[in-house]
Design a protein around this nucleic acid. Sequence first.
DNA 1: CTTGAAACTGTTCATTTGTACAGTATAACT
DNA 2: AGTTATACTGTACAAATGAACAGTTTCAAG
Lengths: 207, 207
Amino acid sequence: MKPLTQKQQEILDYLVECVRENNYVPTLREIAAHFEFRSVNAVNDHLNALEKKGVLSRRANSSRGIEIASEYLNEMSIEPSAGVPIVGRVAAGTPIAAIENLDGYLELGTLYTPQKHYALRVHGDSMIDDGIWDGDFVIVHEQNRVENGEIGVAIVEGEATVKRIRIVGARAELIPANTLYSPILVDLAMTDFRVGGKVVGIHRLLK
Amino acid sequence: MKPLTQKQQEILDYLVECVRENNYVPTLREIAAHFEFRSVNAVNDHLNALEKKGVLSRRANSSRGIEIASEYLNEMSIEPSAGVPIVGRVAAGTPIAAIENLDGYLELGTLYTPQKHYALRVHGDSMIDDGIWDGDFVIVHEQNRVENGEIGVAIVEGEATVKRIRIVGARAELIPANTLYSPILVDLAMTDFRVGGKVVGIHRLLK
DNA sequence: CTTGAAACTGTTCATTTGTACAGTATAACT
DNA sequence: AGTTATACTGTACAAATGAACAGTTTCAAG
């Protein structure tokens, strides 16, 4: 997808800033006022461009109907609102109360949305070479296709497995990350197959 | 302050639910529609009551101008709306909207508290055999000792590293999980050493 | 019995707001 | 040279929205 222009990035930055600071999206006219546009349509054009580039979506006829894609909203915010502080360097002597080098906040709570993401507990060690262990949670962004070679959830005959997925012709290849296992080849014509989503995060709980 | 009436609680619950699910506050008419009120003023009265009781505040003349007090937004993390649903088995045909086997919710947002936990970004591959990769976030429970052999944050002369930690006599052993690296031996008498906490979680963001 | 809060219906109105249409100017491709 | 994307101005309008006013009903407390 095309990269954002500088102005589009500025608009996006302002939107994200608004959500972070006020917890609500601005109206078109509020955006226009901030950038000192003399026409709301300037904002509208920019929003349309940003929507076309997949950065946000808009609810029709709804006030404050801008919905920023979560990946832009949750690039681990600098705001100390909810998340766990990310420490860069731990200073000697004092506990983390005196954090010397704070890199931001890892907001696991808002990084993933229940509407678009779900978690799946991984069974087995077929993905161990990709660092996904037995018992890990993978966080899956729900989507019905992935780029060839991406790690995703393959649903074969109702059974979900996490694998690298390649679609080659009329065949799906489910490629494990473990030299002990062989790729699973799925005949798309014969088998009930679909992609359940793309793995966007891995979480492991240590005891 | 006076407690909320049942209806006021219902309204508040709906507001919180909306914010959680959609990330935006409803309009007065959307609230009225949800409760099947035939008059928007019913909503207005309730909102005024809730405002008087300090539960929310309203921006004058601003659409979707309801601002819920944070204590009501951040509370109830027991609600399944906060976490990411953990799917056991994905049903064929339908998207996760029809979750067949729901194992619960992975509540990363409330699993770790900023008071007791912090995150550290791992640099290098010294823990790769324990499934901790370069760039991973480890979530650390702040404590000044760990059981021998547990994975923790060792702070040597102010530098934090993630290793398996053993205290043997007057010596600390920092044991990497990579056959290419050797354990680091720290003389406790000579070196500024302390334990920065225990690694309780690992999170990896995939692109 | 009266008062008052709570929980509404019903209506009106001024703003707020999204959206559409008609342009202008500039720079980048083709 | 012509087309397209970007970045706007300016105007207009219908729909969405908050807010206000006038009532009604129920029900508990004084």
